[in-house]
């Protein structure tokens, strides 16, 4: 592969890797909104919280894989607590109450992070096996970024199987479509929604761990990535997993090729794409008209 070709190919893989990170964050947000109708403004904070959990587990055990397993579970646990003891009661009061509640929770998480971990930048090392470069037909590419693409692919596969090939998935989809009917069939809807919320925050948790070795773990992490995730959800269509996947990849590619060809416009190219999509399809690329 000549130098120019390898540069363009590298930009494509960078785009895919970043897109997959966005997918991991945005899909959790999307799952929660799609299934429960809650726009979880604390989603970015959960993502950040997981990066901090990852830091602590790594510090205690020195094992990244254990951190990848535990940190998202801890995060999901807090997500479940939020749903069970705070959001469930607010649900009857409508979306505004939920919005304010999740915003408040994000501020509480931010304050807690500062109390427990401080304000300084915390380092998270990637596992040695994922360090270094691999040769792809002459292109030297970082192993860790390929790992991100692979892991996101696995999560996507699990989510698809869970939603479309299992009984639980059927129940969830049915509950979204007609909550009363599913309830009448004797299925405990609040528990289903609690599980959905847990899964959504777990996905944010996975993203938090995956991104920690690439970014600095600090209290501004939620703001840094959270906004891009919201753009993905809005552009892909609220509640659409397919939309989240496709738009995440498009955003990733726009971001990397934008830097390559239109570097001055790179910072706004994602927002421009979102504006274009919403102008044509106000409900998002794969969103369903209410």
């Amino acid at each position: 592969m000549d130098a120019t070709t390898s540069m363009y190919v590298a930009q494509g893989i960078h785009g895919l890797a970043y897109g997959m990170v966005l997918f991991l964050i945005a899909s959790g947000l999307n799952v929660i909104f799609g299934m429960m109708g809650i726009l979880n403004l604390a989603h970015g904070a959960f993502f950040m919280l997981s990066a901090y959990f990852c830091y602590s587990v790594l510090n205690l055990t020195g094992n990244f894989w254990l951190a990848l397993l535990l940190a998202p579970l801890f995060t999901a646990f807090f997500g479940i607590i939020l749903e069970r003891f705070f959001l469930r009661k607010m649900h009857a009061m409508g979306h505004m109450g939920e919005l304010i509640m999740t915003l408040g929770v994000s501020l509480v998480i931010l304050a807690a992070v500062k109390i427990f971990w401080g304000t300084e930048n915390l380092p998270v090392k990637m596992p040695p096996i994922l360090e270094g470069m691999v040769s792809l037909g002459g292109l030297e590419y970082p192993v860790y970024r390929l790992f991100i693409i692979g892991l996101a692919g696995v999560v996507l596969a699990i989510m698809t199987l869970l939603l479309y090939k299992t009984r639980l998935g059927k129940i969830v989809r049915a509950a979204v479509s007609d909550r009363e009917m599913v309830n009448a069939l004797g299925i405990n809807i609040p528990v289903v929604f609690m599980v959905v919320f847990g899964v959504g925050t777990w996905m944010a948790g996975v993203a938090g761990v995956v991104i920690a070795p690439i970014l600095t773990v600090f209290p501004g992490l939620a703001d840094q990535v959270g906004m891009d995730a919201f753009l993905v959800v809005i552009t892909g269509g609220f509640g659409s997993l397919l939309g989240a996947v496709i738009v995440s990849i498009i955003f990733g590619l726009l971001s990397s090729y934008g830097v390559q060809f239109l570097s001055q416009l790179a910072p706004v190219v994602m927002v421009g794409f979102m504006a274009l999509v919403l102008a044509i399809r106000p409900s998002g690329l794969f969103g369903v008209k209410e």
Partner: peptide
């Protein structure tokens, strides 16, 4: 010569350009 947004997440596209 490039200018990136504040608090950027992914520097890889810029770095690939720099390398080239």
């Amino acid at each position: 010569e490039d200018y990136h947004k504040l608090f950027l997440t992914d520097f890889a596209p810029y770095l690939t350009k720099i390398k080239a």
